[in-house]
Design a protein around this nucleic acid. Structure first.
Lengths: 339, 339
DNA sequence: ATTAGCACTCAGAATGGTCGAGTGCCAGCG
DNA sequence: CGCTGGCACTCGACCATTCTGAGTGCTAAT
């Protein structure tokens, strides 16, 4: 059984390994920490930790490195909760305050988080479930194409290209526009498509097909919004920590470009709004991400919730990263969910 | 003076070096190309090329590598113009046809171009100079904040967050909305702010301050649009070609995150719509990009022109990349500038 | 003008030896 | 029984050395 001191040794190993990038040996531990016992004793503890598969030695006779299981224990029981510095707090305020719209705010958020942590930051767009329609605008682009723009009550703007069978005149457009808007204002997004379909009888006959086109585009758009959109930043940071990846980082880069994988992982983690969920290495199996850890937490925007994530090597500074992602998520919620 | 055959030798060196990544020697050239002369002769030619600073030997007694000047000569006079394969053509059609809105189209474009070339692709948003306002929408977000959304004739959607002094009621918003729309519809974007300012006297007195807020936000927004927006994709490709960068790629990664630098370079290159401009290595001085080349060409969207770019190591496949960027730009123009 | 031949250079791979950090184990000690 | 000092052992990292071969420049002959 691993003793209390054994756990302290594990903590020391994780901390030292994270900061030095080198396998840590018994001597290094007695030097850098005040355990008040000799190196030999630490060695005995380490032998136990190794038996429990919390640490491993990369090769006979070199220091130990934490395993995924070791990191897990560290994260769950040993990591002390840091608070972010006031300087960082100011950076957050300053950086995000300048945002001029929703898209830019999320963009700034990921860049900020990736700078704060030197990892890859990810933000998922909120769903549009319970939001209501404010206005629908139609713009003809000529050449059988038009643009349909939906503005919601909470300031989201969604646009969708339409392929039409016949071009619409300005008069047609304004008829459609006013008919549709009269009908849909205040409706839930989920009811929107249905609601527009029902209009195809109440417009001028030659517009009926256009109306159903619009309806299907809208339902598409809502659908597409379900399988949500991700924004990322800081891929370059992965390269900076390249040495942390045994073998190559290409699988990791590939997995990142395949946003689907990340999306799946993030949603599986089911991060609730106030806790930071952590998934370490092999815990999220076979996807090229075996050597990375993923943090996730929730934020809410006008009542809709979504996820903020952070990706980096398993050998990351969990305490710091958890503190950062939590702080950013809170700030984001405060800005977006303002009542 | 460099002979005709000398130029052929240069072409051979560039081609072989690009495909093999290794300095190319006289023997390799006689083996892989049919010059009908001996290695010694090639050596003499190479000595001349070296005198002209078109190639260099990384160290005494190893093959030669093209210099920036060598690449320049190659690009200007030796590169044969490739045509992209029909498979590639189909990929372009297929990939871009699915776009549902302007933002997504540009996003897909960069991803496509970076996949086609294995380089970093960059697209600059078109300016909004000569476009006209279709509709302005106002959405209150509560908490003294509101959103102002501008929809243009050609389907661009710009949004801007407003900080107000007092919250607006629904009635206030309607009044503002209809007053403003009545006034601005059809106006040029450049006239927009001015036009809204003039309204501050014709609305209810308590809305006059809000009106000027909106005006200044709009003028900000137009302003911000001048110093244009870039979208990039394929940063990971840089990492894959890391060996091509003597020293480290961090300066390059940094320069990329500093979008300003790229923006400056791209605009300086003044790519006209039908030619692909090329800037090689040191030609664009001191910015961490000394070991990269930049391709740029123009595309037009509803009459507004903007730039499509491609960034990679100087040791890149110019023929192929030039063909790809040109094809993508043409396709983009065809889709966006449809009359 | 081209070529064959030759001496020369030099980066990179291969080899081998040393060093030292780190280990496991054991016997002794409080 | 837990801790410690000591000791033999292992093995990667580092260094110096050698070896090899690709590639060069030069020269004399065709």
């Amino acid at each position: 059984m691993v003793s209390q001191r054994g756990l302290e040794v594990l903590r020391a190993i994780v901390q030292d390994y994270v900061s030095s990038r080198e396998p840590v040996g018994s001597k290094a531990i007695v030097d850098r920490h005040q355990f008040g016992v000799s190196a030999a004793t630490i060695r005995n503890d380490m032998a136990l930790l190794e038996e429990e598969e919390l640490i491993v030695a990369p090769h006979t006779s070199s220091g130990r490195v934490p395993t995924d299981k070791g990191y897990r224990l560290f994260v769950d029981h040993l990591a002390e909760v840091k608070h972010i510095s006031t300087a960082q707090k100011q950076a957050i305020d300053h950086f995000l305050d300048e945002s001029v719209d929703f898209d830019e705010l999320l963009g700034r958020t990921v860049r900020l988080l990736s700078q704060l942590t030197n990892q890859v930051a990810i933000v998922q767009y909120p769903t549009l479930g319970a939001t209501r329609v404010r206005h629908i605008e139609l713009v003809s682009l000529g050449n059988l194409r038009a643009l349909c723009i939906v503005i919601t009550d909470n300031g989201r703007v969604e646009q969708r290209l339409l392929d039409l069978e016949t071009d619409l005149t300005e008069a047609d457009l304004s008829e459609l526009r006013s008919t549709i808007n009269a009908q849909v204002a205040g409706k839930l997004l989920t009811e929107l498509a249905e609601s527009v379909v029902s209009l195809s009888t109440s417009v001028s006959p030659h517009l009926s097909s256009a109306t159903s086109h619009i309806a299907s585009a809208l339902s598409d758009s809502i659908q597409a919004n379900r399988q949500q959109k991700l924004v990322m930043a800081g891929t370059a940071n992965l390269v900076r920590t390249e040495e942390d990846f045994h073998g190559s980082i290409y699988p990791v880069l590939d997995a990142i470009e395949e946003q689907v994988i990340l999306l799946k992982l993030l949603t599986e983690m089911k991060a609730d709004a106030h806790e930071v969920a952590v998934s370490i290495g092999r815990e999220h199996s076979n996807s090229g991400l075996e050597q990375t850890s993923l943090l996730a937490t929730g934020y809410t925007s006008a009542g809709e919730s979504a996820t903020l994530g952070l990706l980096g090597p398993t050998r990351m500074d969990y305490s710091n990263n958890i503190a950062s992602i939590r702080a950013v998520a809170r700030y984001l919620t405060r800005v977006l969910d303002a009542q």
